[in-house]
Design a protein around this nucleic acid. Structure first.
Lengths: 399, 399
DNA sequence: GTATTTTGTTTAGCGTCGGCACAAAGTCAG
DNA sequence: CTGACTTTGTGCCGACGCTAAACAAAATAC
């Protein structure tokens, strides 16, 4: 009866990622007729997900009737996004298009017991839902640890002092049920849970520096160790059990520091904030986060030869690791986050030269290396993961 | 009018890979009704691709009406498969299901000029087509070099003494046109060309030891250097420009031999046949291939402590490389070919122990490591790549 | 003001698939 | 051997989701 049901999900994803600003573009991107695209847009509007603005959009120079503008409904449904990191947690409501609708002030409690902290972050998010009265369609959580699939357990929550193997997805889902947070179809939310760098990569791919990339590699370091993520054709690649892109144990300095993995000179211990501070001869203090200390040092004392030499050392190590990943994954774009982003911006040419020099064929060495561009990309990524069921089947999710 | 057009390709792939022995299984695998599955099977039979045998198939113990058997048509169309390696070339006709229908005797001419050798192998295949009178639907070529996409040039045909960057796909397509080899739809064949290890992985995934794996990693060494390949959800992952899984320059021995890439102790120079022969104190002779010499040594003199020690050394290096790949790719199965297969079979436990020890989480370390099981897997893989258009859209390809 | 271009909408029609009823072919129980 | 049961194959109908085509609308070009 109704037209345009099969294309509903793809159409929403196009508007969601900003690739379908008008009905005309939507028609072309979906590869359907104008009639179908019109019906799809009408259906999405009826569902309260998008808005159609009949006012023309300053058609610059183009002939013909101007196309109507498609935009995401500003008062549409949201998902609950949560992030736990070394220094605390943060909760937010995120709409389609990666728009942060409401944020709870980042809490700086040190996360001791997983159940306790997850309850707290969900309660903060549920409070935002009550305050704003927005409809909620799901919930996502980012944690600084590999998350095993399909169990949803945190395997190495190193800087959270959590037990290895903590059942984070289960705890998250239970907390959501306790706080009455609804998910797709009005049923209790499922509690999508993932590694923070993985989710950040997803967010950057959809709304940030990774837009349009086919094979996107992200590498970042925040506190201790180095994280990686890969987005292939728009889908996160997390391996057969969620453990892909654990890039921290690539050898980047054969004569380097011993690593707990049994080898020496792993990326984890050669290219994280602690490695940088140590190389610069600074004693890391306990007050501020290692990332913040490294960032301050890099920004304020880059003129100091010792600091500059330390930065170049870490850049060289990182470049070796990236080159190894390029040889294995052959991405068409690389995005760096955390300290790696700062190092890239301090001396972009050096990093690019090392990667190009050590990648096998000049061409794959010339892969663009960019800084991440989204604020709170792990949080937005958690929201993206929570949105996925809606993007896959809007009708079922809105039931 | 006709039912079951959308499912035609998936259905053919199921029969092709042996996952749909009967109409009943086909119905379940496709997730359609019996009526649709029946129409699909009838259509594929009318196209001459499969056969439906109404005779029951010894229904062991099961109740109800026995299902009709589905099988691939023995006299159906074929594709031309070609392989070029260090010692010569080989051509064959391959039907659906990876069945070798006809083979030209492997020619042992040393491949000097790419155009010349590609013309010769295509001519050998065209001869088989003339002899057998079979209908041809495409052609595939496997070469021992990375093949850049989308150009189709051989970037490192190291042991062929070809110029780097030889336009192999173009040469192959031209040779096919010269020999009047038809492709999908009767038009001149397109000349699908790929790296031999990549194509071998594809073949093993569909018809060999990789059947049923979601994320399949293949590693092999034949002559010099080490090749890798990854099959993700049934599709070859060759990266954004065909250069993925160039695994030869993973560092596996920090104090090892210098490598032309500028580093030391790369997998390429630490775990190939030459490395093994050298470690065993043997002087590689020029008569037989390095792989053959290694294989003979391993099989006949494994009792010799020096040989055994050399094997263990190479196994340890290989294990380190595999562990690194496991940490990055998190495959659910690994298949080894060439000398690596021999080493695995000589001492399966040692390799598995090294990989498990150096993989991050015990669980991903327990990934099964198997030998490849197909003869001529690169050749079959070239055929698989050539079959792909037919599997994607049988109607268009047979048009 | 008229022609042209491009977009949105309406209507008719058609292809593909699910649902259902029925027939066919085997097993199982007596 | 017979009848009940189970499972598979097929024909018919209708619904769903799309294309095609004609028409209407809104801008630019001349």
């Amino acid at each position: 009866m109704e037209r345009g049901r099969g294309a509903l999900g793809p159409a929403l994803e196009l508007v969601h990622t900003g690739r379908a600003p008008t009905r005309a573009v939507l028609t072309a991107e979906l590869g359907v007729t104008r009639a179908t695209a019109g019906a799809v847009a009408a259906e999405l509007e009826a569902l309260g997900l998008i808005e159609v603005d009949a006012r023309p959009a300053a058609a610059a120079g183009s002939q013909g009737r101007p196309s109507h503008r498609l935009s995401l409904a500003p008062d549409g449904p949201v998902v609950l996004a949560a992030q736990i990191h070394a220094d605390g947690f943060r909760a937010a409501l995120v709409g389609l298009g990666g728009r942060m609708v409401a944020t709870a002030p980042g809490c700086m409690t040190v996360p001791a017991d997983p159940a306790h902290i997850i309850d707290a972050v969900v309660e903060a998010g549920a409070g935002l839902l009550r305050e704003t009265g927005r409809r909620c369609l799901g919930a996502g959580l980012a944690v600084p640890s590999a998350v095993a699939e399909p169990e949803g357990t945190a395997l190495n929550p190193l800087h959270l002092s959590w037990p290895a193997g903590a059942p984070v997805r289960e705890l998250f889902t239970e907390a959501l049920a306790k706080a009455d947070v609804p998910g797709p179809g009005g049923a209790p939310a499922l509690g999508v849970t993932g590694n923070d760098v993985n989710l950040a990569a997803l967010a950057e791919h959809r709304h940030g520096a990774g837009r349009g990339a086919r094979h996107l590699l992200c590498v970042a370091t925040g506190h201790r160790g180095v994280g990686g993520a890969l987005v292939l054709d728009g889908r996160l690649h997390s391996g057969s059990s969620g453990l892909a892109l654990e890039v921290g144990h690539l050898t980047v300095n054969p004569a380097g520091l011993p690593c707990h993995c049994g080898s020496r000179g792993c990326l984890d211990v050669e290219a994280d904030p602690l490695a940088f501070l140590t190389a610069a001869g600074r004693d890391p203090g306990p007050e501020v986060s290692l990332l913040q200390q490294s960032r301050d040092l890099l920004r304020t004392e880059y003129a100091d030869p010792a600091v500059r030499a330390a930065a170049e050392l870490v850049v060289d190590r990182l470049g070796l690791g990236l080159a190894g990943l390029v040889n294995i994954l052959n991405p068409d774009r690389i995005i760096l986050g955390g300290l790696h982003r700062e190092l890239l911006e301090a001396d972009p040419e050096r990093l690019r030269a090392v990667v190009a020099d050590r990648s096998l064929w000049g061409r794959s060495g010339s892969v663009p290396i960019l800084s991440c561009t989204l604020d709170h990309n792990s949080l937005i990524g958690a929201a993206e993961a929570a949105w996925q069921p809606v993007l896959d089947d809007p009708l079922a999710a809105l039931g």
